[in-house]
C-alpha cells in the first residue's frame, strides 16, 4: 500500500469500518454550505435518501424542494446558477441524470451554468429495488457531454472531500453516489485533488483502475493475487472525466496489462474512458469489469455483486486471464 496516501490501516481487515458513500456527500454539503453562502441545495422528493436532509435542516432558506420532477430539478438549478448560486441538485441517478439528459446538455453544459448534479443509488448494489432503480449508464451519459466533470468517490470520506472540491470548482459536474455501506478505505489525511488518480497499491504485473465501491474489491483482489505471486497496481480513479492520463498511462507502460472495474456499463463508462486513452497513446492488453450490455435485477447487494462478477474472486480470475494475453507471456 502507498504510505504517503494515509489509507485506512484496517482496510483489509474484516472489522473495517463501513459507511454509505452518500453519507459523506451529506456531511460535505453542509460544510460547503458553511464555507460559502452561495451554495444551495435542490432535491426531487428524496431528501433523506440522498442525504440532503442535513443541509436542509441547517440551511432551510437555501434548500428548495422540487417534488418528483427531475426535469424541473436541473433547470431550476440552472437558473439559480445563472443567478449567482452554486446549486447541488440531487435525486436517484436513474432519474437524474437518467431522465433529464437534454436539460443537462442545454441548460447546464451549453449554457455554462455552474450546476452540480448528484446521482445517488447508482449501480446494482442498490439491491432489491431492481433494474429500474439500478443506474448503470450515468457515467457514459455524463462523460460524453462537453465540459462535464464526472466524479465517482470510492468511500464516504472521499465523497465528503469531493463535494467540497466541487463546490469550490467552477463548472458543471456530476457526482455519483452509491446506496450501500462501503468499507472506508481512505482517512481524513488522504489527499484528494479533482482530476487526479491515486496509486493505492504499487505492483508491476498488471494495473487495476477502479472507481466507486469497486476500488475496495480491486484492493481485495490485489491482496489475493499477491499471495499467488502476482503483484497488481491498484489505481483509485475518482475523477472519470477529465481522466488522469499521466497516472494511468505511466502505470500501463510499466505493467503492460490494464483491468478496469466499475459498477456500471463497461461501454462508455470508466472502462470505455481508459480504453480510449490506451487506444490513443499506449495500446495494451485490457479487460473491463462491469456490466456488459445488460440490466440488473432484484436481489441482495451481495448476491448481485456476485452474480454480475463484481467481487474480488471474479477480479482475481479475470486478472489471471488478462495476464495470459499480456505480451505473449
Amino acid at each position: 500500500m502507498s504510505k504517503d496516501l494515509h489509507l485506512n490501516p484496517q482496510l483489509l481487515s474484516r472489522e473495517v469500518q463501513q459507511e454509505p458513500i452518500r453519507a459523506g456527500f451529506g456531511r460535505g454539503l453542509v460544510e460547503a454550505g458553511r464555507r460559502d453562502r452561495r451554495v444551495v441545495a435542490l432535491c426531487a422528493d428524496l431528501t433523506a435518501s440522498t442525504k440532503m436532509d442535513l443541509f436542509a435542516a441547517e440551511f432551510p432558506e437555501r434548500f428548495v424542494e422540487i417534488g418528483v420532477a427531475e426535469q424541473n430539478l436541473v433547470t431550476v438549478g440552472a437558473g439559480m446558477a445563472l443567478g449567482g448560486k452554486v446549486p447541488f441538485v440531487s435525486s436517484y441517478a436513474a432519474f437524474s441524470p437518467g431522465r433529464n439528459w437534454e436539460q443537462i446538455r442545454t441548460t447546464v453544459c451549453l449554457n455554462q451554468a455552474n450546476v452540480k448534479i448528484v446521482g445517488s443509488h447508482a449501480g446494482v448494489s442498490v439491491g432489491p429495488d431492481g433494474a429500474t432503480h439500478q443506474m448503470l449508464e450515468d457515467i457514459a451519459l455524463m462523460r460524453v457531454l462537453p465540459g462535464m466533470r464526472v466524479v465517482v468517490p470510492c468511500d464516504s470520506l472521499e465523497a465528503e472531500k469531493a463535494t467540497l472540491a466541487l463546490a469550490a470548482h467552477e463548472g458543471a459536474s456530476y457526482l455519483r453516489l452509491a446506496r450501500e455501506k462501503t468499507p472506508v478505505i481512505t482517512t481524513k489525511d488522504t489527499p484528494f485533488t479533482l482530476g487526479k488518480a491515486q496509486v493505492f497499491r504499487v505492483g508491476h504485473d498488471l494495473t487495476m483502475v477502479a472507481c466507486g465501491p469497486m476500488v475496495y474489491q480491486a484492493l481485495l483482489a490485489a491482496e489475493r493475487l499477491s499471495k499467488q505471486g502476482i503483484e497488481a497496481e491498484v489505481i483509485n480513479c475518482p475523477v472519470v472525466k477529465p481522466l488522469d492520463g499521466v497516472t494511468i498511462l505511466g502505470s500501463a507502460r510499466r505493467t503492460g496489462a490494464v483491468m478496469t472495474a466499475e459498477e456500471g456499463q463497461i461501454t462508455g463508462g470508466l472502462g470505455g474512458a481508459v480504453a480510449e486513452l490506451l487506444g490513443d497513446h499506449h495500446p495494451a492488453a485490457m479487460t473491463r469489469i462491469g456490466l456488459a450490455d445488460r440490466f440488473g435485477e432484484s436481489g441482495t447487494p451481495a448476491e448481485l455483486m456476485e452474480h454480475f462478477g463484481l467481487t474480488a474472486p471474479h477480479l482475481v480470475k479475470r486478472a489471471k486471464e488478462l495476464l495470459k494475453r499480456k505480451g505473449g507471456s
Binding site: T75, V76, G79, K85, T107, N111
Partner: peptide, 25 residues
C-alpha cells in the same frame, strides 16, 4: 442573452431558479 434555449420547455424553470436566487438574496 440570459439563457441558451431552443429545446422547448425549460425556460420557465430557469426563470424560477433566477427568481428564487433573487429572493434568497
Amino acid at each position: 442573452l440570459e439563457t441558451t434555449s431552443g429545446p422547448l420547455g425549460s425556460g420557465l424553470s430557469q426563470a424560477a431558479g433566477l427568481a428564487l436566487a433573487l429572493r434568497m438574496d
